[in-house]
Design a protein around this nucleic acid. Structure first.
Ligand SMILES: [Mg+2]
Length: 1045
DNA sequence: ATCCTCCCCTAC
DNA sequence: TAAGGTAGGGGAGGAT
């Protein structure tokens, strides 16, 4: 395939570049690499199973699992409830605006920019770095990006696209001079004097104090007259914090954007924009992650297939011949390594972020010119091919990494472009045989020895560090990597497993995340592995599901029998887009859906598969979205021209089916926030009879009957007050209650509180004095580090067999028939590349990669994260630190807890913090809400005071109870409901302000999170928990979630 | 019991 | 100039 805009060719297994590259690669310090022992494998035929025909299935099925209450007695409720919900939404909008005003309370004393949160858009003069420095130095908050709902008071820019003009027309958009001049005079000048205006040559209305003559030319807004962006000119100077709503904060995709702002334009370009998806993917790092992973796995799978089909006894480069893989090594005798590239994207220089410029030294510190990749020289060579160079560069990193791993691995599982699992049982065994024989001074831990060899080798060839976690199973190896980072290896030996696992959290386990943690917390009040170890398998299973519970049960005990996987066939191909979806009309949706169908079809063709089943998915609004979402997902069989079930990869057929499904899902195009098409039940193209070409639009088979969801009323739970169950176990704070909170409570809860406190003989209104500083947990000084003596019998060959060694060997193009497309190799001039790259890669063509690897740097959050990581790494490794170049986060200064690498012991996760009701100085500004005044104050105090602590569980329960009760007792439109929602909104605002960086998990957590992040996440977890509880009730009462927008 | 669908969850 | 994509494991609960 010749896509020019996505990543499908990165590791194309069709082309052999990757394989050739692997085989051609000779590295300094190679050990035991034998690339010459391979033989012609061209006779190896494809032996593939033909999938059996699928069982018949209904053509169109509707999920009947919906739990919403649509039984007849709630019919009115549905209709009118929905209407009221609309009003409710309006109410929320107004309230939101008010809430934003309240945010000024957050502002405290400080520099002239104190209380101001600034996002810098696009290229500015002075540069973004300079401006950032100004902002930070003078007490402001620099927002490196507009995250969803990030609170930003002002936007600074020199230029805006029309889309952004429209998007931000209600925001304070100013020119950089506002900052500069303010600093010059050491006073915050009125921003309204610096309002940014479209800088159109013909109209040329400059701001009040333009210095723009010195600016570089800026792109001219395309429709200055049309949307006539009236930038808000409120006279208020600071403190109108604007909360940028989630998806609305971003530009809509082109289709939608045009639809919204220019119907002419839309008429001309809209429906056709066939390249929208490509364009989007090109810049989506998640897409790249996903597709690279898929390609790497496919590559490995094919290689594995070939390797295993080799004649028995033919194992190039091995003295170990004919060993089957029948006998798995006994428990604790395997050696698994989890190899993880440190800061891959930083390391590969995949960022043009100025912040990092001039600091490629961060990771690429190769001392000699031997093997390292001098990123700086490399990248700066010539501007024009900079991007190309970077692509090559990126590719090389990954290739070098995998190549080295393959040299040592018995077996390999690709995890992602920068991460892999290898089994080295046999390699270690051989190492011991070779080295340890009668040498008393020989190293004891040969697994670690090998790991260090690998690390050294990767360092030589890439100049970068990797971390390696070693243990006897996958789970433990992954965990060991935590300890290994940065730039080390760590062997978690059986004797230490228990002590190692004890302090960890359930979410630290691979495969367990937020939800599992929350369930554990809800059910058992702890998510600590040491605590959970006491739970029986049945107990775990009851909460998490049978299989999951058992898995957890085992993982807690360090047991994990899973083998590395690299031979599994892909089961589905899909295309989802959930970003910036804004449609006005069905027709637009349909057009978009066609594009998605085309994309899916393209991918199917690329891997030569066809599917027999299609699934279409509507994304409900994300977190904190609103409204009822009737059905999210539907599937049906794909059928060919005649209507018979048939595997297909035809985009028309897929689009048609998809549209059918989508129509049968009730949706309002305006409400749509995401779309997805999945194709399942894949078959090999060669086995598929269906003819995919030239079918035209197919009328659907008459037999297909659309299932009307409304005829299938599920017997929803119409018990309105099931929450009573939740309430009965609620605990009240031990410490006292703020009078105002108390006053705001519903009467019955007041009563309950009173009773309880009476019972405890404690006044409810006891202020609590804050406890001392957080004392980080110090682990016992030294665990006994008994070096592991690898217990594998010496003469016994590894039962698993060195598969990857075989793979590697047989990939040698000198002996492989797969040396296709030599002539298609890129002609890109590589002469300007560093000498160390010459020869080895010159003939290799990965330059047809179509993706700009810099997109990896484009997600500021991640870059920011890597910056932090890199800084820490430097610190740990003793290299030049980044100085004050810490990423700026929305968080007030606070004592640095330091490098806390140990988790707190069980049950002492956080020092018992002060509770939420302690009295204290209230913010000077009168809160806006009269009715919710006191509660909000309390929440603010609560959150504010807890910057160093996780929220108290009892406090959470306390609020949850009150909030849930408010929702449950409310009529829609009722004041109690509004108040509850207002409180949640306020809480949300506060959390975003202080813990915005913790709201989402970041996939590139290279190192352990610091305590601050953990605390922040605890806050978010609490918030989501409470929101979830409220939504559950709201769903029953009103048929939808609460919107906090 | 077992399979299937519609999800949810997790990972990178 | 931003760009929350995707594959796969698994559970709940209905269908068979
Ligand atoms: Mg996890």
């Amino acid at each position: 395939m010749a896509t020019s805009s996505n990543s499908s060719d990165y590791f194309s297994s069709q082309g052999s570049e990757f394989l050739e590259a692997l085989a051609k690669t000779k590295l300094p310090g190679d050990i035991g690499y034998d690339g010459d022992a391979s033989e012609d494998l061209s006779k190896h035929g494809e032996v593939r199973e033909v999938s059996p025909p699928p069982p018949n299935q209904k053509a169109l099925l509707v999920s009947s699992k919906r739990k919403l209450d649509d039984s007849k007695d709630s019919h009115d409720e549905q209709i009118y409830g929905a209407a009221r919900f609309g009003d409710f939404g309006q109410y929320m909008k107004r309230k939101r605006a008010k809430l934003q005003i309240q945010n000024k309370d957050i502002a405290r004393n400080g520099g002239i920019f104190h209380g101001i949160s600034i996002y810098i858009n696009g290229y500015t003069n002075p540069s973004i770095q300079v401006l950032r420095e100004l902002i930070v130095r003078h007490g402001g908050v620099f927002q490196p990006y507009l995250d969803k709902k990030t609170i930003v008071t002002h936007i600074v820019t020199n230029s805006l696209t029309p889309a952004k003009i429209a998007e931000w027309k209600h925001m304070k958009v100013v020119r950089p001079e506002w900052l500069v001049d303010s600093v010059d005079r050491d006073v915050l000048l009125p921003w309204s004097d610096y309002i940014w205006k479209p800088n159109n040559r013909s109209e040329s209305t400059q701001g009040a104090r333009s210095t723009q003559s010195t600016l570089p030319p800026v792109p001219r807004p395309q429709q200055p007259a049309k949307s006539s962006p009236s930038i808000s000119a409120s006279t208020s100077n600071r403190a109108t914090n604007l909360t940028v709503p989630s998806y609305a904060a971003h530009d809509s995709n082109p289709l939608a954007q045009r639809a919204m702002h220019s119907s002419d334009w839309r008429a001309a370009h809209t429906s056709v924009a066939p390249d929208f998806i490509d364009g989007y993917y090109k810049n989506s790092r998640l897409h790249h992650l996903s597709s690279w992973k898929a390609e790497l796995k496919e590559l490995l799978r094919e290689a594995q297939e070939k390797a295993e089909s080799m004649p028995e006894g033919f194992t190039p480069g091995d003295e170990m011949i004919g060993q089957g893989r029948a006998m798995p090594p006994p428990d604790e005798q395997r050696v698994i390594m989890h190899c993880d590239f440190d800061c891959f994207f930083v390391a590969a220089g995949l960022t043009k972020r100025p912040d990092l410029k001039g600091k490629p030294v961060v990771v690429c510190h190769s001392q000699d010119n031997q093997g390292g990749l001098p990123a700086r020289d490399f990248g700066i060579k010539n501007g024009m091919s900079l991007q190309q160079a970077r692509k090559l560069y990126t590719k090389k990193f990954s290739l070098e990494f995998y190549t080295v791993l393959m040299m040592h691995a018995d077996d390999l599982q690709a995890v992602s472009v920068d991460e892999a699992l290898i089994e080295v049982t046999w390699a270690v065994s051989r190492l011991r045989e070779k080295i340890a024989l009668g040498d008393p001074s020989a190293p004891q831990d040969l697994a670690k020895e090998l790991a260090e060899q690998i690390r050294t080798q990767v360092r030589k060839s890439t100049g970068c560090e990797i971390s390696i976690g070693i243990s006897h199973n996958i789970s433990l190896a992954r965990l060991a990597t935590r300890r290994a980072k940065p730039a080390k290896s760590y062997h978690l030996v059986p004797g230490e497993v228990h002590a190692f696992l004890g302090p960890l959290d359930i979410a630290n386990l691979h495969g367990f995340g937020r939800a599992a943690k929350q369930k554990a917390l809800d059910k058992w009040g702890t998510s600590n592995l040491g605590d959970l170890e006491e739970k029986s398998k049945a107990t775990l299973g009851a909460v998490l599901g049978k299989a999951t519970g058992e898995t957890l049960y085992n993982l807690i005990r360090g047991i994990d029998e899973r083998k590395l996987e690299n031979d599994k066939e892909r089961k589905s191909v899909s295309c989802d887009i959930n970003y910036g979806i804004r449609f006005q009309k069905n027709e637009e949706v349909q057009t978009f859906l066609r594009q998605m169908a085309k994309e899916v079809a393209k991918r199917l063709d690329a891997i030569q598969r066809r599917g027999r089943s299609i699934n279409v998915e509507i994304e409900p609004p994300k977190f904190l979205g609103h409204g009822v979402c009737d059905v999210f997902n539907k599937q049906m069989s794909l059928s060919g021209p005649g209507g018979q079930p048939a595997a297909t990869s035809d985009e028309i057929i897929i689009a048609d089916h998809a549209w059918r499904l989508l129509k049968s899902l009730k949706f309002d195009p305006k409400e749509l926030r995401g779309l997805g098409i999945q194709i399942q039940k894949l078959e090999n193209t060669s086995n598929s009879v269906a003819n995919s070409s030239g079918q035209g639009r197919l009328p659907f088979l008459k037999g297909i009957v659309e299932h009307d969801p409304s005829t299938n009323p599920s017997t929803g739970n119409s018990e309105p007050s099931s929450m009573d169950v939740d309430i009965q176990e609620i605990e009240i704070p031990a410490s006292g209650v703020d009078q105002s909170v108390y006053d705001a409570l519903p009467q019955d809860i007041k009563q309950e509180l009173e009773t309880e406190y009476k019972r405890r003989s404690v006044s409810p209104f006891v202020p609590i004095v804050a406890t001392g500083p957080v004392v980080p947990y110090q682990p016992a000084p030294n665990r006994s580090t008994r070096p592991t003596i690898f217990p594998f019998p010496r003469k016994m060959p590894a039962p698993g067999g060195p598969n990857v060694r075989r793979i590697t060997a047989q990939l040698d193009p000198a002996h492989s028939r797969s040396s296709l497309s030599r002539e298609s190799l890129s002609t890109t001039d590589l002469r300007s590349f560093p000498a160390s790259l010459h020869g080895r890669y010159q003939r290799v063509s990965w330059l047809k990669l179509d993706i700009d690897p810099e997109v990896f740097a484009a997600l500021p959050r991640n870059v920011q994260r890597e910056q932090l990581t890199a800084a820490r790494m430097l610190k740990t490794m003793g290299y030049i630190p980044l100085g004050e170049e810490q990423p700026v986060v929305l968080r007030p200064a606070e004592p640095d807890p330091g490098e806390v690498t140990y988790l707190p012991p069980p049950k002492a996760r956080f020092v018992q913090p002060p509770t939420l009701k302690q009295a204290g100085p209230t913010p000077g500004e009168k809160l806006y809400f009269i009715e919710t005044d006191d509660v909000q104050k309390v929440i603010e105090q609560w959150v504010t005071r807890f910057k160093l602590y996780a929220p108290n569980k009892q406090d959470i329960a306390f609020f949850a109870k009150w909030l849930v009760k408010s929702v449950d007792q409310a009529q829609a439109g009722d004041e109690g409901l509004f108040r509850a929602v207002a409180v949640m909104k306020w809480w949300l605002v506060l959390l975003k302000r202080w813990w915005g960086r913790c709201e989402f998990d970041h996939e590139e957590d290279e190192f352990e999170e610091d305590e601050q992040v953990k605390i922040g996440k605890a806050w978010w977890a609490a918030f989501r928990d409470v929101k979830g509880q409220m939504d559950n009730v709201a769903r029953q009462r009103f048929g939808g979630k609460l919107s906090l927008r």
